[in-house]
Design a protein around this nucleic acid. Structure first.
Lengths: 197, 197, 197, 197
DNA sequence: CATGAATGAGTTTTCATTCAT
DNA sequence: TATGAATGAAAACTCATTCAT
């Protein structure tokens, strides 16, 4: 069971993670955190060293939410191709997923932190690396199972998949139109299906 | 010829645009602007209403730089396909282009501003719309000239192109590796070439 | 025998007294007290009304340590002159005495509290008065015993002794050199010996 | 002529120096500084890097005031002995001298900073060194002029003088009685006169 | 038009203290 | 009595903006 402190920490992270994703690190103030949690400043600082630590934990939480969602969706699918299709299927409707409403945290954090916040940058880079190897592993397995063409370049496909997803999310968020998303996810779905042996 | 005021405005924009692109709107302070320009705060405020106005002008400048570069590159190319290849050729080396070193301003501004800064958001959205229709027009012309397959879906291709570019830039920036960029731009080059009739 | 509560109080005082002496009242936080004691904030506040009360008790403890040391040293000495020489002999090596390592608490508390903390100020003033009358009594006894010249001005000598000690401690502490201390204590030893009848 | 900034800096130092001397570094807040000056926090920070910098400048100012006063008093005196007597004459009435009302800044700063504030500690140590060599030089000159016994140990006398002054100031401040001061300064005057050849 | 000192609201963080467990 | 999470006031410091010169 979680201690009181661990529960509060968890609570703070859950309540503030969407705020960080929406407003960014520099755009989120400690006041925003107290408003989101209903807790006092002292309480935030009683449970976290500083704003950085909250932001880093919030990123982990946000990314964890996505991972968890994708994983659980994949378990409902039978074939590798269908599992890979979870990506376009998920991001196609990202605006309706509460943890993606404000956009993909990997994208948001990457663009903000790359030149300004080394620790967040590293978290985002690690998240991308994790994502990439997850896709690669799926493809590898598909090849082994004879589902996917054996000459498929897994690392390259992973990168293209991620580019398409993040580039489309960015366009959809800022234009407030679903078209770029649908178009890109349709395209991604098609090239995933074309992996089939 | 430009008036004194217009020249100072222009000077401020030129000097501060890279700063805004690197640190973002919330991450850039007026002090950063005085340091970048060597001018006083009073001078910044004598030439711009407020920080917003500088940021908006800086975005226009940053985007204009890209447009200008792409256009001039395209004029050196003969065929439409080759002109389209300017996109991957340019972004493949974006870290070496001074106005793209800190990443694509459209990407950076979009992810920061989408939920926080309506005016910047609109600028970014317009930039994307402009980019999209530029690509569409090129493809259209390619079709008319018989260079590109007539059944090409121009709007869809434009969106995919932009997704690939921005998604790849994001990955390259945050991981500090060129691989995702090369892979994505190789892929983009290939599908551009495959447009050929 | 001491009750549990009294023992905890005593424990807190012993552990925090050196901290107060080193960092001063304003420079010592409750956190410093929990670190020094290994106890919780609640425990500090369960045994003391507030920070003030701990500080006052800590001063008493610090001063008591000095008194106790001086007294026990004096009992090993036979003559009054030799007993008086305990002062220079003790302070000459004050950096090696654990309860004086951070300087004389009377000096430290006096200079911090004189204009800012009435209760601490009074404690320090009382300590000085006690010290003074101790020296006076010794001299008086020396006169009665025929050891010390009968025309000696005991109150004046006491004040001069204290000035020399405290002034020298201050110089030694801040310059981190022993020379001022040795010089002043040599001088004090000499004038003490000159009291001899 | 002083620039506006230099005048404001000077003004802040003048107004806050007595506050720092009275309440100490840790006991003085930025709010205290705005109240003492009538200026805003922004103005304090516009003219000084941080609280440290104000405190260091305030110490220099406070010490400078003493030096200036002592020097100007000495110029009114003819003999070296009389010049040396400026010390007891000055400190005997220190409570009436505006820049010494809250006690000697060297004493106050030394006892607060010795274990807590390296920069202030160094300033105080340098002030003591300066004071010491000033006294030594005077004695040296007295010896050269035949006014002072040639076998006088100048460094030792300087240390004793400083000990007597600072130890007496401490006692007078905290007990709020002039007696310790008068007694110590009487004693100091006597031993200064005894330097006479 | 340019300067830069000044402002006051806002930022992040620390503090002494309380109180439910 | 002991704990340590929670509090709210205050700390140090920053920021966008103004305005007298």
């Amino acid at each position: 069971m979680l201690s009181k402190a661990e529960r509060t920490r968890q609570y703070i992270v859950e309540k503030t993670a969407p705020v960080f994703n929406e407003r960014g690190y520099a755009g989120t103030s400690i006041n925003d955190l107290t408003e989101a949690t209903g807790l006092s400043k002292g309480s935030i600082y009683g449970n976290f060293e500083n704003k950085d630590e909250v932001a880093l934990a919030a990123f982990d939480y946000n990314f964890g939410q996505i991972i968890h969602y994708l994983k659980s969706e994949m378990t409902t699918r039978e074939t590798i191709i269908e599992k890979l299709l979870v990506y376009p299927d998920t991001y196609r409707n990202f605006l309706e997923l509460p943890f993606l409403k404000a956009g993909c945290p990997v994208l948001n954090t990457s663009t903000e932190a790359d030149d300004t916040h080394p620790l967040l940058r590293e978290k985002a880079a690690n998240a991308l690396a994790f994502w990439k190897s997850s896709v690669e592993r799926l493809i590898q397995k598909g090849i082994e199972l004879g589902e996917i063409k054996p000459d498929t370049n897994a690392p390259a496909f992973a990168v293209v998949l991620m580019s398409l997803v993040e580039g489309a999310v960015m366009q959809a968020k800022v234009t407030r139109q679903v078209e770029p998303l649908q178009v890109s996810m349709d395209y991604l779905s098609r090239i995933i299906r074309e992996l089939g042996a």
